[in-house]
């Protein structure tokens, strides 16, 4: 009983691979359009847009040119 409640509390589900594969297109659609994951992508884009040069490969080039 408590084990069942704990699983429900944690959001774990008992399912088999056949059920999952039958819904694979819906699952992929949810993954690709996920607001949660897309927010993570947006955060990464913002993070990398703020990176400042010189980058390591530019430093290597400068060393070779010197």
């Amino acid at each position: 009983m408590s084990a069942t409640m704990e699983k429900q509390k944690m959001g774990s589900e008992e399912f088999n691979i056949e059920d999952i594969l039958a819904e694979r297109e819906k699952i992929f659609e949810a993954i690709i359009n996920s607001p949660f994951l897309n927010k993570k992508h947006q955060e990464a884009d913002e993070y990398f847009s703020k990176l400042e040069p010189p980058f390591p490969w530019e430093k290597e080039s400068l060393c070779k040119d010197a």
Binding site: E6, K7, M10, G11, S12, E13, E14, F15, I17, I20, R24, I27, F28, A30, I31, I32, S34, L37, N38, K40, H41, A44, D45, E46, F48, S49, K50, L51, E52, P53, F55, W57, E58
Partner: peptide, 29 residues
């Protein structure tokens, strides 16, 4: 898009993975 099923002490949990381009990332290289 990817998914796999984690199996552990709390049962089976479906994990979804998304890979998308970052159009504004600074390092051109």
């Amino acid at each position: 898009g990817y998914f796999f099923i984690s199996e552990g002490s709390r049962g089976k949990i479906l994990k979804g993975v998304s890979i998308k381009p970052l159009p504004n990332a600074a390092p051109d290289f």
